[in-house]
């Protein structure tokens, strides 16, 4: 994987800039995650998710974020391959130079973070995009769409023919059954699959019906973290993230040429604090759910 004609330093500068952007993103993400801890039954968390899912500026940034992530991964992997090639014959003795473990393991901690991201996307992001089945929050007023209401009015006025009436009833049946089922479970959540348990033909009209359905991340999160194995893996991966970030931030500063005797200690300390805060901020949610819920 060679990226020709872009000098090593330029590539590194891209990695550093993108890395700093991702660091800021992590802080935002952590803030949203921490909303899970509020005893408000997901009100803040859902609102935040809703905002992130619908705001147009965020949508633009979502693209930027993905581009950034891909750039970060592609360039670092390409650089790493080049670095391995730069020493075709390895030393017999392992290095005993005084260096930090974090700085030497970036590609591996980065790899672990990537594994986590994959898991994460499966769990949350792909659900949001509707690529993967997940749990949904159903709001009945949204299910009864204006079209359904209109059809209901038309039905009561006897304007629908038989065929249309059957179609309407099928839809309403489905909606009602969702609502009933959902209400039984405190207005929330049922498997999308359950909804689609109808025949394939019937699914099509329903797709429109469920457009107003929001994924229920709040409960998904709680369900996931209640799983101890998942939480354990999650925590380990955040240790890896902390390792990655401790070196990442100070390294980004160095790559951007921001090195000054007066501030180096501060930047180093700040990197540690930032990395630990981020990792703890993320980790506290599963810990809380595992042990206190």
């Amino acid at each position: 994987m060679n990226l020709p004609k872009i000098a090593s330093i330029s590539r590194k500068i891209v990695v550093a800039c993108v890395g700093l952007f991702l660091l800021v993103f992590l802080l935002v993400h952590m803030g949203i995650n921490l909303c899970l801890l509020r005893p408000d039954d997901g009100a803040w968390y859902s609102a935040a998710c809703n905002f992130m899912g619908t705001n147009y500026i965020i949508k633009v940034f979502e693209v930027v974020l993905f581009a950034a992530l891909i750039a970060h991964i592609v360039i670092t992997v390409a650089l790493q391959i080049q670095n391995w090639k730069a020493r075709p014959v390895r030393y017999h003795q392992p290095s005993k130079s005084k260096t930090s473990a974090m700085s030497k393991t970036m590609i591996w901690t980065g790899g672990l973070v990537f594994v986590f991201l994959a898991l994460h996307f499966v769990n949350f992001y792909f659900v949001k995009m509707g690529w993967v089945e997940g749990k949904y929050m159903i709001q009945s007023e949204e299910l009864i769409t204006p079209e359904l209401q209109k059809q209901y009015m038309e039905l009561s006025q006897g304007l629908l023919n038989e065929e249309e009436t059957i179609a309407f009833q099928t839809k309403m049946e489905a909606v009602n059954s969702i609502i009933t089922k959902a209400e039984a479970e405190n207005l929330y959540s049922e498997d999308l699959k359950w909804i689609y348990n109808l025949s394939a033909e019937d699914v099509k009209p329903l797709e429109k019906v469920v457009e107003g359905v929001e994924p229920d991340f709040y409960h998904m999160a709680y369900d996931l973290f209640a799983n101890k194995i998942y939480s354990f893996i999650y925590l380990i991966l955040f240790v890896a993230l902390a390792f990655h970030l401790i070196h990442a931030m100070q390294s980004a500063f160095q790559t951007l040429g921001l090195n000054h005797n007066k501030y180096n200690k501060f930047i180093e300390g700040f990197s540690w604090v930032y990395a630990i805060v981020i990792a703890l901020g993320f980790a506290i949610v599963p810990i809380y759910i595992m042990f206190f819920v």
């Binding site: 090593s8 590539r11 590194k12 650089l79 080049q82 670095n83 090639k85 730069a86 020493r87 290095s95 130079s97 005084k98 260096t99 930090s100 700085s103 030497k104 970036m106 070196h247 100070q250 390294s251 160095q254 790559t255 040429g257 921001l258 090195n259 000054h260 005797n261 180096n264």
Partner: peptide, 24 residues
């Protein structure tokens, strides 16, 4: 290879050249 700011160079330089030069 490329610098990944590991600073083994600084640790092993017999003339104690500093990493601040790389930043410069």
């Amino acid at each position: 290879g490329n610098c990944t700011n590991t600073y083994a160079c600084e640790a092993e330089c017999p003339k104690l050249i500093k990493r601040s030069n790389i930043a410069r």
